[in-house]
Design a protein around this nucleic acid. Structure first.
Length: 958
RNA sequence: GCCGAAGUGGUGGAACUGGUAGACACGCUGGACUCAAAAUCCAGUGCUAGCGAUAGUGUGCGGGUUCGAGUCCCGCCUUCGGUACCA
């Protein structure tokens, strides 16, 4: 017994001890400030950024570090290549979960957030990231949100000048109003208003404030917002998914509320145009494109029969105007009250009430269901002079275009459905017989039934109509965007307070810069109030500001994350959000990695803020993120068993096949811990007898359950040894409630950080989503051990100073070439096999020569920083391997004397022959033809054709 | 519906501009060491037929271009992601 234990211990001591070595180097790197980055202008810069995490209470699971590992490899690689690398990390620390947690437990969000951050930090350090923690950023820290508030004030104090195509101070706009009123002002705004200088001067402060709110880049208005009752706050469009809140999945309804907005729409065209030069995934660019949703068309005014006002509509198809048999207004449209005749009043109001009563979710569920009512009024068709009835309809949206359309039921799916439901006339205006397969959506066909447009092709007719409309003065060409202004108010506690106070008239004033940061008051009670008031309203002393009152809403989650990448450049500056020098040196992010879920939220807002700061001359470039990569998600396998919903309180589980057969019975799917499941993640996943025993121990409340298997009905005691209770296996989220969370700490503890890092990379292409599977990690673990043993004999470190052979050099340089190329194109999953092949080959050659080992260790350092550092120091180096020079491939070692050629007949490989490297096509053909093997293949016939690709293959066509 | 991405062994996945499909790893099978196990090492492993050399077949399906197609073109199918009354 003692002998075996001794042998086992001896064997263990020969192996790489990751726990001790990782602890040693973590400490050492910390003391030596190995990863501290200086704003050193002598070196070329490289900025590698991860999307910073929200520090949630559950900590990191194995999916989170995927992107961080990839970016860390890039950062370390660039550092070894001589770049001054900025590779920071921080926390997106404001947000709903911390506040929800506070409501449930009474723990202050600042306290729980700080605890969570410490957990995150420890987890990140375990994995061996090369972050420069001296630049750490927390969005909830007053020294940080001071500048978030400051940027908000800049937005508040600016408007968008469309002549200069940039943001300008509101003070300049006021000067223009004072001297010349609204005429000559070409500023981006929400709605048209005209006034003279005298009228402006005569306005009350409140009226002036209202006018300016129409121009400010951060402004207040009453708008229809996504109100979430359960969360007690409004949400931005990108925070709502499928009609429910993205966080928590609570129902969301539309509600009119006074809110802060950011005028991102002023930047719509620039957000669209500047995307062209970005090295971003095409899919993501397309998503932003669609979200911005540019469409060209005409703004068009229709006279209203018996009224002075005109009805403004937007259409991309002015060519179909002769098919416009009715008009539709959004139910919330301003003119609805005015246009509704007494006879129609009841019908219109009933319709409006019905539409209001439907939740966003219901509307989504019954998308094609349309509701409307006739107002009783008519417009005059500008060309035919006919009376066209005006309807209201819920399929027309208040916020898009002008909230009103001319309906062309013959050429628009939705108009057609509406016309059919309410029996409205349909007139065909486009003949598509020459365009088979063309849909209503496609702008092609010949115009018919349309007076002067008859016989024209659609695109020509559109052009002609633009000219007609502009010529007649009844409208203009216009570009519309789907993009809406961003709702910036949240009725929550845990966010940045607005540096805004209101006077007795309700006019908004900016706090002076000297009073920033405006810190959050301490609160005991975080609950939102039912009437939509922010919890901050309860801090009555805080709200009072002399004769003024403070804004009590807070900023949304995306406020702090819209500029954090700039703060890292100069994180401890208390005079500025970052110094001009730091911004000039670091410029922009060279490499940004994060999840695609931020495609239209964070990435859009960040670009918007950055462009605004650019207009102000505060940042050097137009775009913040040069290259962007979306890493995929690591999912979890969700295993569940079928529990029959019995009415007598008994617990009966069914094997999957039986559950499917009994479609008459109702089953609940009970998630079961993946550790109990045999062959989890496959169609054969099942619980064995032992698995069922484990399950019952884990959930004692199910003791005494009955199991329906294909062999019969059993209890735990009567189960046969080979029992199989098949489970339902799905790929889903890694989450506590599915009992499938894998903690990186456990992986690191068991296999070591280097092994964990390499395995995550080995799993597959970085941008691909895949379920986590621990089984394969053994392969990488073996590789790490082999690497260690290459330089050890027994316990002793042993390398030879002999000169390396050509073959050994070739092995090393093949790996150097492959790995450096792979990192550049972020194909990290293929680098890992390159290392494996290299180590396997060197082991076969019994090579432990210093020359080769030094190259190998420096090469693997970005992937496996701990073992590389340890081996590097054992190789006698006194400085860190992470400051060493990355090996460069010498192509001359890769040249072969001979090349093995596949010999093909009609493209099918029949065998192979070796010929000297460098032989040209003619020589190769001749040598091949003379070869006995080839002669036999050709059976004496002369080939019709011989294709020779030097270095590749030889093909005979017979 | 529309937009985008992807379909390769039992599994994760390789394959640069068209040029030996399945690298590397997991798993599995057999063997060595061991009283035994773990660990380690060696060999085999797409499928079908055959003791075997070998032959046939094979990258979602159907066509096409080419001396040669996982890769290019046309038409489908499936899966995943995004989006949705956007006028």
């Amino acid at each position: 017994m003692g002998k075996w234990l001794f042998l086992w211990l001896q064997q263990r001591s020969m192996e790489y001890n990751h726990r001790a070595i990782e602890a040693k180097w973590k400490k050492n790197w910390d003391h030596q400030h190995t990863y501290k980055t200086l704003n050193d202008t002598a070196k070329p810069k490289y900025y590698v950024l991860d999307m910073f995490p929200y520090p949630s209470g559950s900590g990191l699971h194995v999916g989170h570090p995927l992107g961080y590992i990839a970016s860390d490899i890039v950062a370390r690689f660039k550092r070894q290549q001589g770049f001054n690398v900025l590779h920071p990390m921080g926390y997106d620390a404001f947000g709903l979960p911390a506040e929800q947690y506070a409501i449930q437990t009474g723990v202050h969000p600042a306290v729980s957030t700080e605890q969570n951050i410490q957990t995150y930090r420890a987890q990140l350090d375990n994995i061996g990231f090369s972050f420069d923690w001296s630049r750490e950023v927390k969005t909830s820290d007053p020294s940080y949100y001071k500048w978030t508030q400051w940027i908000f004030l800049q937005l508040f104090e600016h408007y968008y000048d469309q002549n200069a195509n940039k943001a300008k101070p509101v003070s300049e706009l006021i000067q223009q109003f004072e001297s010349g009123g609204s005429s000559g002002v070409n500023a981006f705004h929400s709605h048209d208003e005209h006034f003279s200088a005298e009228e402006w001067q005569a306005m009350s402060p409140y009226q002036k404030d209202q006018v300016l709110m129409n121009f400010r880049l951060a402004y207040r208005k009453t708008g229809y917002v996504n109100w979430c009752e359960a969360l007690g706050t409004v949400l931005a469009n990108d925070e709502v998914k499928d009609g429910v809140s993205e966080r928590g999945g609570h129902p969301v309804e539309r509600k009119a509320m006074m809110q802060w907005f950011l005028r991102i729409t002023a930047y719509a065209h620039r957000l669209l145009d500047d995307m062209i030069g970005l090295d971003w995934p095409e899919a993501l660019k397309t998503m932003q494109n669609n979200w911005i949703g540019r469409s060209e068309g005409a703004q068009l005014f229709f006279k209203i029969d018996g009224h002075d006002t005109e009805l403004e509509i937007f259409t991309t198809r002015p060519d179909t105007i002769f098919g416009a048999t009715f008009m539709v207004l959004a139910p919330e449209h301003d003119l609805v009250g005015q246009l509704t005749t007494p006879a129609q009043k009841q019908a219109v109001e009933a319709c409006i009430q019905y539409v209001k009563g439907r939740s966003e979710r219901e509307r989504m569920a019954e998308v094609k269901e349309m509701n409307g009512a006739f107002t009783g009024s008519y417009t005059i068709h500008p060309f035919s002079g006919e009376k066209v009835p005006i309807w209201i309809g819920d399929y027309v949206l208040k916020d898009y275009g002008t909230g009103a359309i001319m309906a062309v039921p013959s050429d628009d799916e939705r108009d057609k459905t509406f016309a059919q439901k309410y029996n409205l006339p349909i007139v065909d205006v486009v003949d598509k017989t020459n365009y088979p397969g063309s849909t209503l959506h496609d702008k092609e066909g010949i115009i018919i039934n349309s007076d002067f447009l008859n016989g024209m092709e659609v695109p020509d007719a559109i052009q002609l109509m633009f000219e007609k409309i502009e010529g007649m003065g009844i409208g203009k060409r216009r570009v519309n965007f789907k993009l809406r202004d961003a709702n910036f108010s949240r009725q929550r506690y845990w966010g940045e307070p607005f540096p805004i106070v209101y006077d007795a008239d309700g006019v908004a004033h900016a706090l002076p810069e000297s009073e920033l940061p405006l810190t959050l008051p301490d609160l005991e009670d975080f609950k939102p109030t039912a009437d939509g008031q922010s919890p901050l309203a309860k801090a009555t002393d805080w709200v009072k500001y002399g004769a003024f009152t403070r804004e009590t809403d807070t900023m949304p989650g995306f406020a702090g994350s819209s500029w954090y990448f700039l703060r890292y450049m100069d994180a401890n500056n208390d005079q500025d959000f970052a110094s001009t020098e730091a911004l000039a040196y670091w410029q922009d992010v060279d490499f940004y990695i994060g999840g695609a879920e931020h495609a239209v939220g964070h990435l859009m807002y960040s670009r918007f803020w950055h462009k605004f700061l650019y207009d102000k001359g505060l940042v050097p470039g137009k775009e913040p993120f040069k290259k962007l990569v979306n890493q995929g998600m690591i999912q979890g396998v969700v295993e569940s068993i079928y529990l029959y919903k019995s009415h007598d309180g008994s617990h009966q589980f069914y094997t999957e096949e039986l559950a499917k057969e009994h479609s008459d019975k109702e089953f609940a799917l009970l998630p079961v811990h993946v550790d109990f499941v045999t062959e989890y993640g496959s169609p054969r996943s099942h619980l064995t007898k032992a698995g069922i025993a484990q399950f019952l121990e884990w959930r004692p409340d199910y003791k005494g359950s009955v199991f329906h298997l294909s062999e019969g009905v059993f209890t735990l005691e009567t189960l046969p040894e080979n029992a199989r209770l098949t489970t339902k296996s799905e790929v889903g989220k890694m989450s506590k409630r599915y009992f499938n969370v894998v903690n990186p700490d456990d992986m690191v503890d068991k296999y070591g950080a280097d092994c964990f890092r390499m395995y995550e990379m080995f799993l597959g292409p970085i941008e691909q989503s895949k379920p986590w599977d621990t089984k394969g990690i053994e392969g990488v673990s073996k590789f790490i051990k082999k690497l260690w043993q290459l330089m050890h004999k027994g316990e002793a470190f042993l390398v030879s100073d002999e000169k390396a052979t050509k073959e050994e050099l070739k092995v090393l340089h093949t790996a150097i070439k492959k790995v450096s190329g792979d990192i550049e194109i972020l194909s990290l999953n293929t680098s890992v096999p390159a290392f494996m092949v290299c180590v396997n080959e060197l082991k076969r050659l019994e090579c432990n020569k210093r020359e080769i080992m030094e190259g190998l260790v420096a090469l693997i350092a970005p992937f496996a920083p701990f073992i590389a550092e340890e081996l590097w120091s054992k190789l006698g180096k006194t400085t860190s391997v992470h400051h060493s020079t990355f090996p460069v491939c010498d192509e001359s070692y890769l040249v072969e004397d001979n090349v093995v050629y596949p010999i093909c007949i009609n493209g099918k490989r029949k065998g192979e022959l070796t010929f000297p490297n460098g032989a040209d096509a003619a020589t190769l053909e001749q040598m091949a033809m003379e070869n006995d093997f080839v002669r036999k293949l050709l059976e004496g016939q002369a080939p019709k054709k011989v294709v020779v690709v030097p270095g590749r293959m030889i093909n005979f066509v017979i």
